[in-house]
């Protein structure tokens, strides 16, 4: 019958459309990551670049508090100094120390967090252990540097900032197989 044929044509089109939208849902994942990358949001795993000749603002001192946390893995993790005072624009290096207390090899990934939130805009990290995963052998201890500049554009009412890192275990990972997925949106 004519209607039946016409109906099944419409149904086929709609089914294809449904499948396309299902795939679209998954396509949103790389799309989202691309948008975050293009707009420069949330690029946690890449080093920043500095402006040509950064101006050091020697008239100002900002207190930088360093914080370290672990989530769900048998490590010890701490900064070697808990706070320091820096001039905006000045290149600083701080050291963190991490120790694997267990007798197995573990992959960890550090995720940074800043307080106040707007520090994220003005903090340029040239080197950081958080740019890649850290693989620690049983009972291994490692000292890791972070090099950063707090730009002089930091609002003048901000006098104390906190840089915090949290180590997560990379799920299901043995050292050989897993790598972080790169820049994440």
């Amino acid at each position: 019958m004519n209607t039946i044929e016409a109906n099944s044509v419409v149904m086929k089109k709609l089914l294809i459309f449904t499948v396309v939208m299902f795939v679209f849902g998954f396509a949103l994942v790389p799309f989202y990551e691309k948008i975050c990358e293009v707009t420069g949001l949330n690029n946690l795993l890449q080093a920043d670049t500095l402006a040509e000749n950064p101006q050091v603002d020697t008239t100002r001192l900002v207190t930088v508090e360093l914080d370290a946390n672990i989530r769900g893995l048998p490590w010890q993790f701490k900064p070697l100094q808990s706070s320091l005072r820096v001039h905006p624009g000045e290149l600083v290096e701080v050291m963190y120390e991490v120790r694997n207390n267990s007798d197995r090899e573990i992959n960890g990934q550090a995720i940074p967090s800043y307080s106040p939130q707007l520090l994220a805009k003005h903090l340029k990290k040239l080197e950081c252990f958080c740019f890649s995963k850290q693989v620690l052998k049983p009972n291994e201890t490692r000292r890791m540097p972070v090099q950063f500049v707090i730009e002089s554009g930091l609002p003048t009412d901000v006098n104390t900032v906190t840089i915090s890192y949290t180590f997560f275990e990379l799920a299901g990972a043995t050292a050989a197989t897993s790598t972080p997925k790169g820049t994440q949106g």
């Binding site: 989202y32 975050c36 995720i111 997560f168 799920a171 790169g182 994440q184 949106g185």
Partner: peptide, 11 residues
């Protein structure tokens, strides 16, 4: 969506 594995819950 697992931040520890490089995903993003906000996504």
């Amino acid at each position: 969506f697992n931040a520890a594995g490089g995903g993003d819950p906000v996504m």
